[in-house]
């Protein structure tokens, strides 16, 4: 007798589970209310990431092609995996006559970056910030090495180095 009881209980528990899956199946078949999966490139044009999303490190430029980086190399030292390389030179400022560092190339190796945020945390002049782009797929690894400062961009003369 317990044999049939076992079968009955087994079928009952299976039906309990199938009730749940069946409900979702039929409700979503007609209304698509609880559909949770998304086709990947479908919403790519309308997709907006959250402001804090860490996609890549970028350098902000204003409308006159000016950035805030004075090549202090604090971010280079803060980075745990050698993602950032800064190439700079010394140049004489024509106004004040003092020699100062000038940023030539802010090289960012995206392929090595772990998005830990230590560089942006350390930057004393808010020159670098988070970008929300996450489409980094490429056929060649060398495409991931980027130069963050735009060509012919210069240091903003009014920039302030905040003390953090």
């Amino acid at each position: 007798m317990s044999y049939f009881k076992d079968i009955f209980n087994a079928v009952k528990t299976l039906l309990t589970g199938m009730k749940i899956t069946g409900r979702y199946f039929f409700v979503n078949l007609f209304t698509r209310r609880d559909v949770i999966t998304v086709q990947y490139p479908d919403n790519i044009d309308t997709l907006k990431m959250h402001d804090r999303f860490r996609g890549e490190v970028i350098m902000g430029h204003d409308e006159n092609n000016m950035h805030q980086c004075d090549a202090c190399t604090i971010c280079e030292n803060a980075c745990p995996n050698g993602t950032i390389e800064i190439i700079w030179d010394k140049e004489k400022n024509p106004e004040t006559g003092k020699t100062q560092k000038v940023l030539l190339n802010h090289i960012y190796h995206l392929e090595m970056c772990t998005m830990c945020g230590e560089c942006i945390e350390a930057c004393p002049s808010d020159a670098i910030e988070w970008g929300q782009n996450f489409h980094h797929v490429t056929r060649d690894r060398s495409n991931l090495t980027k130069s963050l400062n735009r060509p012919e961009s210069i240091l903003n003369p009014n920039f302030v180095k905040s003390k953090k």
């Binding site: 949770i36 999966t37 804090r52 998005m115 830990c116």
Partner: peptide, 29 residues
């Protein structure tokens, strides 16, 4: 195999909270 999709349905909501506040979904830092 069903359980995997049901678990990810609920986990997605937590990931969304993490992404909004911490900036990443898994390695929040």
């Amino acid at each position: 195999l069903t359980t995997f999709m049901y678990a990810f349905r609920d986990r997605e909501l937590i990931n969304e909270i993490m992404e909004e506040t911490c900036g990443a979904r898994l390695t929040m830092n």
